[in-house]
């Protein structure tokens, strides 16, 4: 990674409800126009990291108690989500969170709430979203609560795009979607990155696909970064293969073997 990063998270600690320590010193960087993956199991702290950046933690009684978050060299951990969206950082939450009673198009338009550059520009961006997600155009007048899971995920990403972001924090886009659809969504993420110069920080449990599309990855475990590296290096790492990609050596393992032998995570020693 060369040049100043777009986003730099430095050694942050997050505490929920004043007592529950969730992140214990997480540091990561996202370069300009990068796609960075944040990997880990349930409860590792992926979502919390993203929410710390977008500052949605406040709504869940969470607090960044230590460390700094810098976006384009400026400290942003005290800014409200609204101010962050205005500056170009927007989160797509896990589980899609569309506005169920609004139509797909109204959902997209709510994404433009913070925009002040006029109707024409917003209209153009709506067309842009429809170019990336032609399916949404067909469903534009349907209530978002009734469209399919994939279409909801597209609506959520499209809604984030409507704020003209520099950086999208994408939380678990693959959740509950068919593998083919997951592939489709990641393809669009890649195109948005290349054509619209949007940087992505994406949290994923689906390590396989995340490392295929990201250029750099961080692995979180129990609120700490335990490993990071280029996507290709991570994908080739024996530990990552064993614990996150479900591969070990050449042949598949039977469950009986698993009982006897468990590879020790090297980073724990």
């Amino acid at each position: 990674m060369t040049g100043a990063p777009l986003l730099a998270v430095n050694n942050i600690e997050v505490i929920y409800d004043h007592v529950i320590l969730v992140l214990k010193g997480v540091s990561l960087q996202v370069p300009e126009e990068g796609i960075v993956a944040l990997l880990g199991a349930n409860g590792a702290g992926k979502t919390t990291t993203l929410k710390a950046v977008s500052n949605l933690l406040g709504a869940e009684r969470g607090d960044v108690t230590k460390g700094t978050i810098e976006y384009r060299g400026e400290r942003v951990e005290k800014l409200s989500p609204n101010e962050l969206v205005t500056r170009g950082v927007v989160q797509v939450m896990e589980g899609r969170h569309c506005f169920g009673h609004l139509t797909v198009e109204e959902n997209l338009m709510t994404g433009a709430y913070t925009r002040t550059d006029g109707r024409g520009a917003i209209r153009d961006d709506l067309d842009l979203v429809y170019r990336y997600f032609p399916r949404l155009q067909q469903r534009r007048t349907s209530q978002a609560g009734y469209v399919s899971g994939g279409e909801q995920q597209m609506t959520a990403i499209g809604r984030a795009l409507m704020s003209k972001p520099k950086m999208i924090l994408l939380d678990e886009p693959s959740m509950g979607l068919a593998p083919q659809l997951v592939e489709e969504i990641f393809e669009i993420v890649k195109r948005l990155n290349e054509e619209e110069k949007v940087s992505f920080l994406l949290a994923e449990q689906n390590t396989n696909i995340a490392l295929k599309y990201a250029r750099y990855g961080y692995i979180l475990e129990n609120g700490r970064v335990v490993m990071d590296g280029n996507a290709a290096e991570l994908a080739a790492n024996e530990d990552v293969k064993e614990f996150y990609l479900g591969l070990s050596g050449t042949k598949r393992k039977s469950y009986r073997d698993v009982k006897h032998y468990r590879r020790r995570k090297r980073w724990l020693s």
Binding site: L56, N82, V85, T86, H97, G100, L102, T110, Y113, S163
Partner: peptide, 11 residues
């Protein structure tokens, strides 16, 4: 409809 999502898009 959804407080959290509304916050996340900057409302």
């Amino acid at each position: 409809d959804d407080h959290q999502a509304a916050l996340s898009v900057g409302i």
